[in-house]
Design a binder for these strands. Sequence first.
DNA 1: CCTCCTCCTTGATCATGATCATGGCGGGTA
DNA 2: TACCCGCCATGATCATGATCAAGGAGGAGG
Lengths: 247, 247
Amino acid sequence: MPDSLTGRRRSVLHETRCQTCSLSSLCLPLALEIQDMDQFDAIIRRRAPLKKGETLFRQDSPFTSVYAVRSGSLKQVTTEGSGDDQLTNFYLPSELVGLDGIDEEHYPGTVVALETTTVCEIPFDRLDQLSESLPELRGQLYRSMSKELREDRRMMRLLSRKTADQRLASFFAGLSDRFRRRGYSPYSFRLSMSRADIGNYLGLAVETVSRILGRFQSQGLVEVSGREVHILDLESLTLVAEEEGAK
Amino acid sequence: MPDSLTGRRRSVLHETRCQTCSLSSLCLPLALEIQDMDQFDAIIRRRAPLKKGETLFRQDSPFTSVYAVRSGSLKQVTTEGSGDDQLTNFYLPSELVGLDGIDEEHYPGTVVALETTTVCEIPFDRLDQLSESLPELRGQLYRSMSKELREDRRMMRLLSRKTADQRLASFFAGLSDRFRRRGYSPYSFRLSMSRADIGNYLGLAVETVSRILGRFQSQGLVEVSGREVHILDLESLTLVAEEEGAK
DNA sequence: CCTCCTCCTTGATCATGATCATGGCGGGTA
DNA sequence: TACCCGCCATGATCATGATCAAGGAGGAGG
């Protein structure tokens, strides 16, 4: 009976509100008062969950909304010329997707779910309007974009100055930290992305990712089995990530 | 007579307004009506010109303002750990400096003038307030940040997938385009940055920059003498910049 | 004018990580 | 169970660009 299923799912979707959302302390409405949050809540559109591999939006499709990740994870891929993809970002719960499409008619990349993923759609014209009357919301939006800018700069530094070892160590330390902030274990988690995705993101060949992960394991830094990751020595890992040209 | 000099300079500074600024079609107040531009103009603080090598602000100093470049050029440098700098951006007239400091107490990098440079200081709290009543201004601010995000992603792609040749070709083609948009010749210009700056920005050693520039010259793509650049074959240069793994 | 210093160029060697090639593992399906 | 296919691991070779080394050119200041 697909109808009842649909019915049930819809009601589930409708009952989710920013007020009851466990992410509200990280997400866009972060700084809003209860009554303001209602206004914000009203412009949000919940979407049916995306299954693994499904597309949230495609590169070059018209920009209309930004999205906040509720659960799951996504990757953003930009294709230029023919066949040469660049994975520019992974998105975890509470993060905003699509901010880089604001100034153009179109999204600059395709965003794909790495696992079952739910997002809140926020039509950008409504968001902009609302940001006029809600200074806190506006500030939060400026901050989100600014933060993404800073993270991009960190990524540039990683890509232009770090060795393969440092890149992978940074990547795992970074993931660990992001999980921690979201209330998950910073030491045990499951990767939602493939080795190929990681390599593409970090500017490394798959083989290199594999090899270095193997080495990290034999050095007792992590324990990796497929996509299950246990971080055994976060401190040393962080050290590897930061080490100055130090051989 | 320092007084008269100061007096004269100040009056020069005061007479520059957004309305009479040749950059107004590119700069932040782009979309504003005359009367709105007056409001915007009122919050701007003109600054005495920076001389080559002078610092606009330092990394970790408190974030207060963003800056619009009026003339000249600057570089942003981020230092992490000890001694390992990363040049994250060059700024040309009409571009906004400091947007990546909004969400933190401090600027994430030091910004230094590459030549004599004038900027307009825009206190961010005033800008935010004004963006409440001027939707056009707000939109322009969102767009500026979004654009910078997109450019960062392009840069990541460059750093993670392009060869040294492609990076330099991209860099020169990009500069050419930025000069064109600002009404300067896209074929003849003077670099305000050193080879070392270029290398640092592109993730290449100085020696590599030198060598490849030499090769481009012998291939008839450009003519370079010190910091004077003539682009002889922009089309081929663009081709080199884009070529797909094409050997 | 000479000197010093910074910036740039060019050559020789080396190392990191890409590429090519192969094989294994694991999970889904008939 | 057997097969298939995507994903991952590992070995061997190679190429790109870093690093080391040396020298030149131009500009500022004595």
